[in-house]
Write a protein that binds this DNA or RNA. Sequence first.
DNA 1: TTGTAGGCGTTATCAC
DNA 2: GTGATAACGCCTACAA
Lengths: 357, 357
Amino acid sequence: MKRKITLKQIARELEVSISTVSKALSGSKEISEDTTQKIQAFAKLYNYRPNNIALSLKNRKTKTIGILIPEIVHHFFSTVIFGIERVANKRGYNVIVGLSNESFTKEIINMEMLANGSIDGFILSISKETLLKQDYHHFHATINQGMPIVMFDRVVSEVDCDKVIVDDFNGAVKAVNMLINKGCENIALLTTMDYVSVGRLRTQGYLEALERNNIEPNSDLILKINDSLNSADHLEFLENEINKFFELNPNIDGVFAVNELYAITAMKVAKKIGLKIPEDIQVIGFTDGVLSKHATPTLTTVSQHGQRIGEQAANLLIDRLESEDVEPDSFIVNSNPKSDFIKLVIETEIIERESTK
Amino acid sequence: MKRKITLKQIARELEVSISTVSKALSGSKEISEDTTQKIQAFAKLYNYRPNNIALSLKNRKTKTIGILIPEIVHHFFSTVIFGIERVANKRGYNVIVGLSNESFTKEIINMEMLANGSIDGFILSISKETLLKQDYHHFHATINQGMPIVMFDRVVSEVDCDKVIVDDFNGAVKAVNMLINKGCENIALLTTMDYVSVGRLRTQGYLEALERNNIEPNSDLILKINDSLNSADHLEFLENEINKFFELNPNIDGVFAVNELYAITAMKVAKKIGLKIPEDIQVIGFTDGVLSKHATPTLTTVSQHGQRIGEQAANLLIDRLESEDVEPDSFIVNSNPKSDFIKLVIETEIIERESTK
DNA sequence: TTGTAGGCGTTATCAC
DNA sequence: GTGATAACGCCTACAA
């Protein structure tokens, strides 16, 4: 077992100085043909590779991106990671993943763990608990330390940073519009509690679409589901809630659900009580995951393009990291660093499947 | 924007030496009460945290684990990551993720990228292409460099390292046994091509169960599906294959599928051609993912306990990393480092749902 | 053409 | 009690 070889060892072995080795390996023409050749051959033989940690320390940049997300066993988030990793890798960066599990404390711990030199910047989506608490001091702190953050999906206006968001509002408008155009007259909304901003935006989109079509919103047709329960009991609870809801409102002929699970469950309940999809009731869900594609009938969804979100976020972050390099040299007067944060809105796309006519 | 503060800056500010600051902060009692207090207060005020990179360089360990997997948008793998992250975090480690996308080359590039000091050890699952090529030199190389590897799920006997695997063989036996006990007489096997070892093991389990029950295996009832196509066309292809298969073998009353997708698709096709589940045909799939839980009918599956796999793998790796620290001091004669690699077999568990009687 | 020295941030050893 | 020094591995400005 031969440990990784270092410049020092090569130098000792070849009886030259460390800097000669360094220069020879980087192809500097300060060094003579002969020694360069000799050194490069030796290095190749022993498979020399510069130590990343040493480089990081010297260059004060690690070439790695920290991702901090609420959960990973989740189609949307893993898709985003996939997108991030893709461009990160292409641009020479690694990716380090931290999970908050929707917990405020774990989010903070993870941030501190990574912010101490391990990474050059963050790409993150805020945990539910943090959103509830509305305590964003840890974001401000790391930004103040000069570490850039790019937020995606669950973002918050209180923090100044680059953001990549889904066009939740218009996605919902499009979906509900489609239901209306396909003949639905009593469209139900299945949504979450308000504190997760995306849920709120999707609800607003639902209302907006109704208004544009001169349909009076009916609060009976809106079901707000408490999603704070954990998965074990959650599924049953969900089915019961939706079941009650459908029985109270037998006139429902269209459903817009703010996430895939609600949509799938709505279909399941509908089928159980004898409704035909899409003949009797049409369903559209936000978020295009595995379930939608494989449900029977397959589910029409609003796709968020998770991969694109990840790619854009990574590009945004890396662009900022690499532009910072130049900053100290440039004396642009209007650099205006406070307000030129970018907010990318990723358009949604409706994927039509069998649950709509 | 105040950059992260360093020992040097504290020292300068307080007009003491760097080493005094270092000692004071680590609570050494070499330093007087007074200065210790003063320094600690100052450090707290400026929120001093030691720089991880510098520590890594000094200690020659990064306290981070490299995960290298074929894909991340995949329930099983993300579950494993979840498990790894959990124990890694608990034990003070970070987790850096690389994706091979089932590509041999990307696997190598990622390994080399991470092996140059960025991590202390690997947890990985081998890409399909690598398994096909049977070229494992990169694993040997990194192990030879003194970097431990723990493989999970897709492992290979040619590489000497710790392994955590699913009991694919017995899982399959259990599943097929269950089908037999529930009255199935013509059990079909839906499997992949042979080169992915887990597929082969599950196939062997299927055969074993038949044999134990004195049932003559019938090659007509085994469908090997070419899964090298990409997802776009794959689904349709899959449905067609299974459809043809079912039509050729109308006597099938039980299906064991080596993965969730095949099982779900089999159910879909069965329903389409008018078979009732589980009355006419019962189905069990390997891998317990989201689809199984939400399909109609819900699918009986063989759960692999992905999270536990991840946890065990992480514990194995960290145990090895932290035992290495002691090694140089201990002069145990029978240390026998070559052959004491651990192979953990995680038992599967059948989760009964509606697709079986 | 080659080598020396300093520094990235930290800790540990040893001297004062 | 406090501080100087070396070392982790690398790079680079500056000497020789």
